[in-house]
Amino acid sequence: MCQTAEISRHIGRIGRRSFDRRMRLASPLFVERQGEVARILNEVDRLSDRLHDEFITITEDDYRMFGPELKIVISTLKALRRESQSRPELRRYDERMREQILDLEELDHDIVEFRIKAPKDEELQQTLASIKDIDFSYLFK
């Protein structure tokens, strides 16, 4: 089992900060505190790295805990990106946000497909197990 609690806390922190960011962006009195958006995006990068590193240990129970929060982070990031696009001083973050959203969406999808569905797929598991009976020695003659 992965460090679900840590991942959940990490996601929660990002979610709260980016939501707060969105609310302040919407204000006509908005002024970005230096580096604030960059700090959020750095956190997202760290989350993404963590999910990649722990991917193979993530279980269905883990995903049940942090999956919904992960989806919230993705949708909040998308909204943050949309609002940032109308602020010239924040457009420099656009490409980075785009890549991060893609990365998290892909991770989310792959967790469902390969950490939840694939282990239950008996046919797939049997096929994978049968590989050890195949003779590949001829490739080295």
Binding site: D110, E113, K117, A118, D121, L124, T127, S130, I131
Partner: peptide, 16 residues
């Protein structure tokens, strides 16, 4: 955008 579990299963079957 993605590769579903079903497609990966097919690829592994082709491999075997």
């Amino acid at each position: 955008l993605d590769i579903p579990d079903a497609e990966l299963k097919e690829l592994v079957e082709i491999f075997t």
